[in-house]
């Protein structure tokens, strides 16, 4: 069992090294900017659920871009709903973890994480493979209204809370 795990790990490491090498090659050719700290229009995001669409988009290296933030400020915070352009489609998603500075005790992540949902609030994937802030529980409960979309379904597929 442990042997199998080890082999799995080594292959994944090799893949990662390859990916880094490719990224370096690309960085020399393209103009790249660091990850955006603020979720506004055209900010690139990272899909962290296991939905087919999200996985394919991330594997291709074409991460979704935010094209609208559903609040009045136009800047997305944890738990906000956003509209994203992903592989030529428009999908809605919920921000679950940001790179921006947070208040004390609220985790700050190394990437801007997104979970894709449909119009009813049902997530497209079945699992979130990164930790999710616990404050999302309260925020999503508040945002869910009796007759509207039920966003708390996102919490049900989270694997770990921080």
């Amino acid at each position: 069992m442990s042997f199998l795990l080890k082999t799995l790990k080594s292959t994944s490491v090799a893949n990662a090294v390859n990916a880094v090498g490719q990224a370096q090659m690309q960085a020399k050719l393209l103009h790249t900017t660091p990850v955006c700290y603020e979720i506004r229009k055209l900010a690139r995001l990272r899909v962290v659920d296991n939905s087919d669409l999200g996985k394919r988009a991330m594997a291709e290296g074409r991460p979704p871009r935010c094209i609208h933030v559903y609040n009045k400020r136009g800047i997305g915070l944890v738990g906000d709903k956003v509209l994203v352009a992903i592989k030529g489609q428009m999908k809605k998603g919920i921000l679950v973890g940001l790179k921006q500075k947070q208040k004390p005790k609220i985790p700050k992540f190394d990437s801007n994480n997104l979970v894709l949902i449909d119009d009813n609030g049902t997530p497209l994937g079945t699992r979130i493979h990164v930790p999710v802030p616990t404050i999302l529980r309260t925020i999503l409960k508040e945002k869910t209204q009796a007759k509207g979309a039920d966003y708390t379904k996102v919490l049900a597929i989270a694997s770990r809370f921080i």
Binding site: K108, D110, R160
Partner: peptide, 16 residues
Amino acid sequence: VDEQGVEVLYEMYDPT
């Protein structure tokens, strides 16, 4: 955690 970098800021004299 789970290959995702996480940072938490704590205030040292936070009563919670």
